[in-house]
Nucleic acid binder design. Structure first.
Lengths: 115, 115
DNA sequence: CGGAATCCCAGATGATACTG
DNA sequence: CAGTATCATCTGGGATTCCG
């Protein structure tokens, strides 16, 4: 068995590593999904990703910003108003998210529910 | 911005979590990619995924087996001959892998190479 | 060859309290 | 509201050695 293209193993390893590094961890994907429904405030994301602590949310948002997947906009009002949103690059994860969603459904149907 | 389907956020969170749990970590995807080129022995995978320690390879293979992504076959010869291969479920990660590969390439082009 | 056993550490994550 | 600070814990992962 072999994938249809002819990319040798070592090259695949490197290319997929870049992607995995970005979505790796317990919180990245949930946060991105929350933002895929539109720009949101810190507290709104925290409500979506119900069990995340403020420390982790803050840290992950900073890393997503560094990787240019998310923008952070501060409106100088009182009290401060901060808004997070996906960049075009962040939105380009769309297809990958769909695949995760679809494969996750398949996996649950075939494995998890049978245990 | 919103994904094209109408699945509400909480349901997406659960479905993608299943998928992420399976591919999460530093080694899962590399191991699966190695096996996507055909069934292999312990030492062969270790050579493909060059920097992995035997402890981690052993541990990850066991977890992949538990999740029915990989089979482990022992041939009772001397010395023992052990073979690992992807199950159909494991092979069904194909599309996801392609997306990781393609998005990883995009990410490198847009971000990593500009730093 | 295909691991298991052991020791060890950095970093990931959690809980909670606090601040501008 | 949007975080930061602090302390505690838990786990991934590395290095090394040993075994049938």
């Amino acid at each position: 068995m072999k994938l249809k293209d002819n990319i040798p193993c070592p090259e695949k390893l490197r290319a997929t590593k870049d992607a995995v590094d970005v979505i790796n961890g317990k919180w990245r994907i949930p946060i991105i999904i929350s933002l895929s429904y539109g720009k949101k405030r810190f507290g709104e994301i925290q409500r979506d990703v119900a069990t995340i602590s403020p420390k982790m949310l803050s840290k992950e948002l900073r890393e997503l910003e560094l990787n240019k997947l998310v923008t952070r906009t501060v409106y100088d009002s009182k009290p401060v108003y901060v808004e997070y949103a996906l960049t075009p690059l962040g939105k380009s994860l769309d297809k990958l998210l769909q695949e995760l969603l679809s494969w996750g459904g398949k996996f649950r149907k075939e494995i998890i529910s049978k245990n």
